[in-house]
Design a binder for these strands. Structure first.
Lengths: 352, 352
DNA sequence: CGCCGCACGTTATACGTAACACGTCCTGGC
DNA sequence: GCCAGGACGTGTTACGTATAACGTGCGGCG
């Protein structure tokens, strides 16, 4: 069915889809260069030293360039049994952290001729369609965040090398793990607040059942264990600005002495906490200090700018990709822990 | 929400990388089911009606399930000459807008058995490595944002169906285009400010050489053309909170009557504008109104929440994917324009 | 009765690449 | 003078799938 000819004229340029594509194959190159197809493969594969004369090798290369030859990836993958492609499984790309993880992983992959594909439609694709149906053929390995639990359960049975992100280093099923040193970040954040003189501190805890968030809570508790006059509470919340607003409101209006600092598990919560404080007529940081975690773009967008801990998301992705490639080369990658950075900005000050 | 069960031991499971993988092929299934490989392909391909008896078809299916058969994608792609995979080219995934575009595209693709891969390492992969070296074999089509200019130039020569996002509908080289109706959004935003009584308006223009931003400026100028007593200026800026802060500072401290409203090309600029206003001792929206564009998560995180226009990013991605699939089916997709939504929130009020 | 289709299957390719297993010279050492 | 071995290539095969082409019987229709 050709489309109805509309008034919008379309000369002879871009045809929709009916363009019969006469692909140029390695055999075409061979014919043009006057050699065999095998020679083309050798030359273009770079392993022709002592097998093909420099003269003919050059002929092959120029022929390939002139004809615009592009090796057929599908054929190569089939022949080699590898795809040089990794799958990155994350809960949601709209989370800035995971977008950064992807960026780092993709960059590290590209440096080694690898590609990265994402778990399709991270949030909310129905379980009806199994994205891993053909994973063994299309992928060489998997990098997964421990926060993508539903996606991980869909992976059961795949026998691919698996690098876990934000996950317990003792996880048995993982080929390798890579984590930012969140415990250290929380420790430094807490030390910062204690040094400023804060003692009544409320922890806005993200109620996420994931190892990284368990670590946050544990590190927070640990860091305050030795402080004798500390008055520590914890307020659970979902992982959003909205939830941070509500939790902070609850923490700041609770009967009894008001906390002078809110230590949030995430920048989103911290942004919400700032809003809650301001709506209660409290100034940040003069009346109440707020800290975040992650260093999202948001941390610099709100007023005041958030004191937070920068997680090396890109580096997490890159290290994960490197670990996977090591495993693919037959190596045994070590668990990786990456340093974090404390960023003291405008949302913390001594208590009133 | 099951607790993380660390006691659950998995002894002899995950070996690092040395697992020789004995893949099960369609021939194995055939052997197990007592039929030929062709029959397996027919049955599993769903086109066996009248070719294979229901009884044997069942045998094939159970054999496939028992053996854990997964079709080899590389072989299938080679045989079929299609990959059911599209490439999405965006400038940066860390931009929330494009993360949402990807999400929508991936979801629409998954609904039709398609996959979406991203231009590898969008920001800053060197030009040395050509990501499209084998695109014709690995991809069925391309969806590209007009903002990814450097990536697009790398695409020259590829003869794939191309759907352009945020791009001039008259673009000749595109198979199809899909755009949010930004002009309408800007018009409504401007009308909103005019209705509130604003006349001294400064446009914080993102200095991006892209069609979408040209449209923003043009629509803004057009909407204010008929207002006799309007005092309109324009302040160029890069696309960041920082740039918004500086541009707004310049606009608000310029000699002469101060603008009562700042109309920003993007929520990032708007957030920066709010910071600038507050640092100058001005209240938003009492002293100066600020509007954004995009409706990023940030718009709800800052205080006050931004009046802005929500761009249907997911829908843009999904429509792009649908257009590509129609083109792949031989159809001629129409240019798509998607409606936007004006969101009046806390950053706009009548002028002082 | 003969032959056409229909239901059921199988055999035999072909997709484009990488690499193994062979060949053929040519050069040099003894 | 002869053979070992390196340089230089080519023929051939296999990867696993989808499908065109090719048989079989068998019931019905002319």
């Amino acid at each position: 069915m050709t489309a109805h000819e509309t008034t919008h004229e379309q000369p002879a340029a871009a045809r929709p889809g009916a363009t019969a594509a006469p692909r140029v194959t390695s055999r075409d190159v061979a014919r043009a260069a006057g050699v065999s197809q095998a020679a083309v493969s050798l030359v273009l594969g770079g392993k022709w030293r002592g097998r093909v004369s420099p003269h003919k090798a050059d002929a092959v290369r120029t022929a390939a360039r002139d004809l615009g030859y592009r090796p057929n990836l599908a054929a190569r993958n089939l022949r080699m049994g590898r795809t040089r492609t990794a799958l990155l499984v994350v809960p949601a790309l709209t989370s800035e952290y995971f977008a950064r993880v992807y960026t780092g992983a993709a960059r590290a992959a590209a440096d080694h001729g690898f590609g990265v594909v994402l778990y399709p439609s991270p949030e909310g694709i129905g379980p009806a369609r199994d994205p891993f149906a053909s994973a063994r053929a299309a992928l060489d390995g998997v990098i997964a965040s421990s926060m993508a639990t539903d996606a991980l359960t869909a992976m059961r049975g795949e026998e691919l090398p698996l690098v876990m992100l934000d996950s317990d280093p003792d996880d048995a099923q993982a080929t390798a793990t890579v984590n930012p040193d969140i415990a250290d970040g929380v420790r430094r954040l807490t030390a910062h607040l204690l040094a400023l003189g804060h003692r009544r501190i409320t922890h806005l805890a993200a109620a996420i059942d994931s190892w990284t968030f368990h670590v946050r809570s544990a590190a927070f508790a640990e860091a305050l264990r030795g402080v004798p006059d500390a008055d520590v509470r914890s307020e659970p919340a979902a992982l959003s600005v909205e939830a941070g607003l509500h939790a902070a409101h609850a923490a700041l209006t609770r009967p009894g002495p008001r906390p002078t600092a809110l230590l949030c598990d995430d920048d989103l919560l911290a942004a919400g906490a700032c809003k809650a404080a301001r709506r209660l007529g409290l100034r940040v940081p003069e009346d109440v200090s707020v800290t975040g975690l992650d260093d999202l773009a948001l941390a610099m967008a709100v007023e005041p700018e958030l004191t937070t801990v920068r997680l090396p998301a890109e580096e997490v992705g890159a290290a994960g990709m490197r670990a996977l490639m090591t495993a693919l080369d037959g190596g045994a990658p070590e668990p990786v822990t990456l340093p974090v950075e404390l960023l003291v900005r405008g949302s913390t000050a001594p208590p009133p």
